Amino acid sequence: MIRTRAARFRRGIVFVLPGLWVLAVVLWELLSPLGTQFIELLAATPAIACAGTGRRQCVLLGGACALLALVPPGASGRAAVSGRIGTCGAVLAVVAASYLISGRTRRLTGELERAREVAITAQTVLLRPLPPRLDGIALASRHVSAGEGALVGGDLYDALGTRYGVRVLMGDVRGHGLPALGTAAALLGSFRDAAHDEARLPDVLRRLERALHRHLYERDQRQPAGAGGDRSDAEEFATVLLLEVRAEGEVVALNCGHPWPHRLSGDPDGDPARGPGPAVLAPGDPLPPLGVFPLPAELSPLPLTRLLPGDVLVLHTDGVEDARDATGAFFPLAGALAEAARGAPPALATLVARVQAALLRHTGGPVTDDFALLALRNDRGPGPPAASRPPRALVAGP
Rank of each mutant, 00 (worst) to 15 (best):
L92Q: 03
L17P: 13
V204S: 06
V25F: 05
R214T: 09
A340W: 03
L242Y: 02
A66N: 03
T350H: 10
P346V: 08
Q356A: 13
L242F: 05
R263H: 01
T45D: 00
T105A: 13
T183N: 12
A297F: 04
R78F: 11
L61T: 08
L242V: 08
L17T: 15
C50M: 15
L264Q: 07
V251C: 03
P390W: 05
A64R: 10
G266C: 10
F191M: 05
I101T: 13
L178Q: 14
G328V: 10
P131A: 10
R219T: 15
V95S: 06
P289W: 02
W260G: 01
P391G: 09
E117S: 15
A115P: 11
L30M: 13
G62P: 09
T45H: 03
G77N: 11
N255P: 08
A211F: 04
L31W: 07
D369Y: 08
T363W: 02
G83A: 14
P224A: 14
L70R: 09
T327K: 09
H258N: 08
H258D: 10
A253W: 02
G381M: 10
A393I: 03
S145H: 10
D318K: 02
H316P: 08
S32P: 03
L205R: 01
P18S: 03
R263N: 05
E235G: 14
G284F: 03
G397P: 05
R361S: 06
L376D: 05
L299M: 05
G54E: 13
D135E: 13
R210W: 01
L254K: 08
H262Y: 15
S265I: 02
L42Q: 08
F371Y: 15
T183A: 15
R263L: 14
R114C: 00
A195P: 02
Q123T: 14
R163P: 13
T239N: 11
F331P: 12
D311N: 00
P132C: 00
V95H: 04
R174S: 14
C50E: 14
M1P: 13
A297E: 05
P129F: 02
T87G: 07
G77C: 05
L242S: 02
R200Y: 00
A140M: 01
A393P: 00
H316F: 13
G328E: 07
G149Y: 05
G175W: 00
D318A: 06
E339K: 09
I137S: 09
